[in-house]
Design a protein around this nucleic acid. Structure first.
Length: 841
RNA sequence: GGCGGCUUGGCGGAAUGGUAGACGCGCUCGACUCAAAAUCGAGUUCCAAAAGAGUGUGGGUUCGAGUCCCACAGCCGCUACCA
């Protein structure tokens, strides 16, 4: 398409409408007590996952979710809701800092430029955000409250009796010592092995390691002093309360698996004078333990290893620590291990079993030690085969499966007092025995680890913490926000010292007090941004009680609808739930969950069906699409591609298709010369069929929006447009109704046509039209006649025809006669208005 | 290996257990045009057509299955020795 011949002048009217909505604050959302607030309106909070403002700008994946929420938001407004639909920027993060290292440009400068570009792009798509509520996580006022919430975590502990967070002040009052309190804070300091990257100059979370390694950075394992958040205390609640949310089952399952609850037992084995505890989910197989394995990093390894085996064990440990940086996947194909020379005593039968170390046992899960039951665990079995260790059957399969490597439940054998018990009962019995004899206990184990919360970066929130004599202290609220000092040099020092430690003037305070120099991870800001939108200019509180009360729900989740990509299924969505629960426990918010309904938009692939990436050269830039076809076409296309949640490939031809549709709508009302078409009529519409299509469209589009089924809503609007075209005349009233329902999808063109044909009100401020049931009624319909389930004829018949009348007409059909001739009708199924099936033989 | 998702024309996709392929793209033909583009109209699952076949494969339930049940295969995503 050439620039000179556009099918409709979107390049002129789209920016014009955008600036009008902006200057008139059309989509401003009043809070209680503010001008324009109407207490009679119900509230609706629809939220997008805010973007990281990268230098590359928006990609086409962003407008997918954003258009979906925009349609919902505009629709709900027209339905009479007070809609909160905000936007902001997750603007801390490593790329801005990497850029600063390369160019010396302060991250604040590049971030501001990127935000400006994102804002321009978002505005060019005509989203109905309340721009006065815009936030960026890097804003000092925002940082202030992020730090404040951190201090809430710091000043709280998890009370096991009530299963809730409580202020540590309560413990102080009870006379707990400083050290005891430090041991239970929800934010605490620990020496822990972490992934540290010398060239990035920071530690990385487990889940970030692969990403940055892929970009060529090196990563190594090191024990370092770090801030941790005690999310593990919430593991059970984070699982249980998923049930109260309207989330896709797949995402719930992902979170459950990530938290990874396992029920089992801890069993104490004696090794010489020491005792080693193992965790097992199959305590019923204790009699079948033929050896024990410790993780190579297990603290007891050196002590128990005998002289003869020392060299081999040390060599193995060394090999493992070097290996830990390599891709484990490849190494794990083949199990390896070394005998320590020590023996452990099985508490249940006194058997002496050899103790090995092997890297298939992880220090980070359970106790870092296992009892190996090769007969009924595939990993132990594999290991036993390789090193020729005994395999003892203790479970009899319920079917004729081979007992070797049989892991399903069965019946206990060779297990003393457990013999004959089914697995489930045997588990209970052995745990009872372990407790009685003080050799172990029932144990619920989670995969979830405490959250490694500190980074050594520059571009993140500094911790509002000071140190004196080896103890940490909270900064008073009055000193928030604590902002990072400007630095000349952002280059990593090559040591694990945080970048901020270079700013000596900032770090060193009087009286031997120093500042904490770690910063928070990028997740911190996104953990609570949805709360700040409700009351973003409040300087007294992170959110006022009144705003929180108004925008919250009767339901457990505060936000009514949250739309974003699956990539955040576990991390962001789990972290935000955790923070919200702490704030809930402490009485700062009144719902236990942040997001009631969650929808994941599907990935948009390139035209080649592959993931979009620079290296493949299949990236579509939304700016280019807007320039060529306009914002409405981009919005409409992204919604027409297919179901929101589905993965789907981009097709530029498809954009052209929806653009043609909008052009047809335009031409219904506007002539080539730009005048109002003579087809627009002011008389009442007498065309029953046209009326029926219009009202069917109003009905279906409304229902489809509620279901987030935008592609079918658009196809119905296309049908309606075709009906207008065919009718030859366009009754103003019905056409205006059509424009009103088109408006949430393609707001610029809808408003412009409406204005041109003489509309004075903004469509965006009109009510969603009601459909007329009467107009939908059909008197006649096509009835499908089947013989033995096969379509044989269609007959026109009254909607209210009785079965006998229908049968009579059906039997009169030659095509039907042909197939029932000489046969007996055994059965007749009649679904009025749909189908008649004659069963004959 | 585990978990999840997907599988319907040439393509994107529609189908409360009731006419498979709505809507759109592409393609074919026609109109308009000196011509092209744009636009408008007709057609388009397969087979030359009648008959028939047809929603990844094989079974089952049902008067009737893309849809429900069982088994299997392929593709995509996430995760990874979780004891």
């Amino acid at each position: 398409m050439s620039d000179t011949r556009k099918p409709f002048p979107f390049d002129e009217f789209e920016p014009r409408w955008q600036s009008r909505w902006d200057s008139e604050k059309t989509f401003r959302t009043p809070n209680p007590g503010e001008e324009g607030f109407d207490a009679s309106k119900p509230k609706y909070y629809v939220l997008d996952m805010f973007p990281y403002p990268s230098g590359a700008g928006l990609h086409v994946g962003h407008p997918e979710g954003y258009t979906a929420t925009d349609i919902i938001g505009r629709y709900k407004r027209m339905k009479g809701f007070n809609v909160l639909h905000p936007m902001g920027y997750d603007s801390f993060g490593l790329p801005a800092e990497q850029y600063a290292i390369k160019t010396g440009q302060h991250p604040a400068v590049t971030t501001a430029a990127n935000i400006e570009n994102f804002r321009r792009q978002l505005k060019s798509l005509g989203f109905a955000y309340d721009w006065e509520r815009e936030i960026a996580t890097t804003d000092p006022e925002y940082v202030r409250w992020t730090q404040w919430i951190f201090l809430q975590l710091y000043s709280s502990y998890f009370c096991e009796e009530t299963n809730k967070a409580k202020p540590v002040a309560e413990l102080e009052a009870k006379g707990w010592s400083r050290d005891e309190i430090d041991n239970v804070r929800l934010a605490y300091v620990a020496d822990t092995p972490v992934w540290w990257s010398p060239d990035l100059g920071t530690v990385l979370a487990n889940e970030e390691v692969e990403e940055w390694k892929g970009k060529g950075h090196t990563v190594e394992r090191r024990p370092l002093r770090q801030w941790m958040l005690r999310i593990t205390k919430y593991a059970q609640r984070l699982i249980d309360e998923l049930d109260t949310l309207d989330w896709p089952e797949g995402i719930k399952l992902l979170q459950k698996n990530w938290i990874g609850r396992s029920e089992g037992a801890e069993v104490i084995f004696a090794i010489g004078g020491k005792s080693v505890t193992v965790f097992t989910t199959r305590p019923d197989t204790l009699f079948g333990a033929t050896y024990m394995v410790l993780a190579p990093e297990h603290p007891y390894v050196s002590e128990i290893t005998t002289e003869d085996n020392k060299d081999a064990v040390e060599a193995y440990k060394k090999a493992c620590s070097a290996k830990s940086d390599l891709d484990r996947t490849d190494l794990n194909k083949d199990k390896s291990g070394v005998f320590t020379g020590a023996y452990a005593t099985n508490p249940v039968n006194g058997e002496e079993i050899p103790v090995w170390i092997a890297d298939y046992v992880m220090m980070g899960y359970g106790t870092g030690a296992i009892m190996a039951v090769p007969a009924h665990d595939v990993r132990d079995f594999e290991f036993a085969q390789k090193y020729d260790l005994p395999v003892l059957q203790v479970v009899q399969p319920t079917d004729d499966s081979d007992w070797q490597g049989y892991t399903a439940p069965g019946t206990a054998i060779n297990s003393g007092f457990l013999d004959g018990m089914p697995t489930k009962k045997a588990k209970g019995a052995i745990i009872h025995w372990l407790v009685e004899n003080q050799k172990g206990e029932r144990k619920i184990q989670f995969k979830l680890r405490d959250w490694l919360f500190s980074r050594q970066r520059y571009w993140g929130e500094p911790f509002p913490i000071t140190w004196k004599d080896g103890k940490h202290y909270a900064l008073p609220d009055s000193e928030l926000p604590l902002l990072a000092p400007p630095l000349e040099d952002y280059k990593p020092s090559g040591t694990p010292d945080p970048l901020l430690s270079k700013a000596r003037d900032w770090v060193e305070l009087p009286d031997g007090v120093t500042r904490e120099t770690n910063t928070m991870p990028q997740w911190a800001g996104s953990c609570w941004y949805y709360l700040r939108y409700c009351d973003n200019s409040n300087s007294e509180r992170f959110i006022s009680e009144a705003a929180e009360d108004y925008w919250t729900n009767e339901k457990p989740g505060m936000v009514d609808l949250y739309v974003g990509g699956t990539e955040h299924a576990v991390l962001h969505l789990l972290y935000a739930r955790f923070w919200h629960k702490v704030l809930f426990d402490l009485g700062h918010v009144r719902t236990p969950e942040p997001f009631q309904k969650l929808v994941n938009q599907g990935l948009i692939l390139g035209e080649d069906g592959q993931k979009m990436s620079k290296s493949r050269g299949n990236v579509v830039n939304p700016d280019d699409v807007v320039k060529e076809y306009g914002a409405d076409s981009l919005r409409l296309y992204e919604m027409f591609m297919g179901p929101l949640e589905q993965v789907k490939p981009w097709q530029m031809k498809g954009v052209e298709g929806v653009s043609r549709f909008l052009a047809r709508v335009w031409r219904l009302a506007i002539t080539d010369e730009g005048n109002v078409s003579e087809k627009i009529t002011d008389t009442q519409c007498t065309d029953k069929e046209l009326l029926r299509v219009v009202h069917e469209t109003i009905k279906k589009v409304g229902e489809d929006i509620e279901k987030l089924s935008f592609n079918t809503a658009i196809s119905q609007m296309m049908i309606c447009t075709n009906a207008f075209t065919q009718a030859g005349t366009v009754p103003r009233k019905e056409f205006t109704q059509f424009l009103t329902i088109l408006n949430p999808f393609a707001p610029h063109i809808a408003e412009e046509i409406h204005r041109l044909i003489g509309g004075t009100e903004l469509l965006s401020e009109m009510e969603w039209p009601a459909y007329d049931e009467q107009a939908l009624v059909r008197t006649e319909c096509e009835l499908v006649v089947q013989v033995n389930g096969k379509l044989r004829d269609r007959i026109w018949i009254s909607m209210t025809a009785s079965e006998d009348e229908a049968k009579e007409l059906a039997f009169a059909s030659d095509k039907v006669k042909e197939h029932i001739d000489g046969k007996t009708i055994r059965k007749v199924i009649y679904v009025p208005g749909k189908i008649m099936n004659l069963v004959a033989n």
